[in-house]
């Protein structure tokens, strides 16, 4: 089953810079895909298009078989509930504990309290932070904060997980831990798309690699490495 499909997708920003040019790409359910390339190559645009933070200038994007380009703005929240997102800067709320940060994400999509109380500890166990539930983000290390971010993205069990430079601020040892976690999430059936420009991580994982350069796909390789 095709989880994500780009058909002739282009994105031209208002200042006439083309971030993506005529992209055709299929990502199947349960795949783990690295999106590599230098900054400005279109990785972030790719991810923003998927969560419809921006709209494609031309072409069609299908997610789980549904065309999301003509999605009404009132349907966007529904789309985003099916896509977990993690970031380089974690985007955690500093005035809330780990538990509250994850609970918040479930609360705002209308999950009832009893489900939140059951799901949050569960997902914290998955990321290995069960005993840090009551800590505040500033009391955690970078790696731990990224785990909270992953827990929040995954709490609702979305079929797709997008990661935009998740290890950008972490040292190699910590990054390895994060990658193990993402692998585990991938193994239980989640489609993972990760944008990165860290060579060692890509090389160690031996997953599908899609390389972008100036808005074009210049390489799509199964079990690939960073540089060709």
């Amino acid at each position: 089953m095709n989880m994500i499909e780009f058909r002739n997708v282009s994105k031209i920003y208002e200042n006439d810079t083309a971030a993506l040019k005529d992209i055709n790409l299929v990502i199947k359910k349960g795949e783990f895909v690295f999106l590599v390339g230098p900054s400005g190559s279109g990785k972030s645009t790719f991810i923003k298009l998927l969560i419809k933070e921006i709209s494609a200038t031309s072409g069609t994007i299908f997610i789980a078989g549904r065309n999301v380009c003509n999605l009404k703005s009132s349907r966007i929240p529904q789309l985003r509930r099916n896509i977990g997102c993690i970031f380089q800067d974690y985007k955690l709320l500093s005035d809330r504990t780990v538990f509250e940060n994850i609970a918040f994400a479930l609360e705002v999509i209308g999950k009832p309290n009893y489900i939140i109380k059951a799901q949050v500890p569960q997902v914290l166990k998955l990321v290995g932070l069960y005993n840090r539930m009551d800590s505040y983000p500033h009391q955690l290390s970078g790696g731990e904060q990224q785990r909270v971010c992953i827990a929040r993205a995954f709490a609702n069990r979305p079929p797709i997980l997008l990661a935009d430079e998740p290890t950008g601020n972490l040292d190699p040892a910590t990054s390895e831990g994060i990658m193990k976690l993402l692998s585990r999430i991938n193994i239980i059936g989640t489609t993972v798309v990760m944008a990165t420009h860290e060579r060692s991580i890509v090389n160690a994982m031996r997953k599908r690699v899609v390389e972008l350069e100036q808005g074009l796909i210049i390489r799509d390789q199964k079990r690939g490495v960073y540089g060709s």
Binding site: P77, Q78, L79, R80, R81, C85, V108, I109
Partner: peptide
Amino acid sequence: RKEIEVMKLVGATNWYV
């Protein structure tokens, strides 16, 4: 703004925000 960003990201409805 940070909460709003997270809310939108995880799919809170517009009216909820």
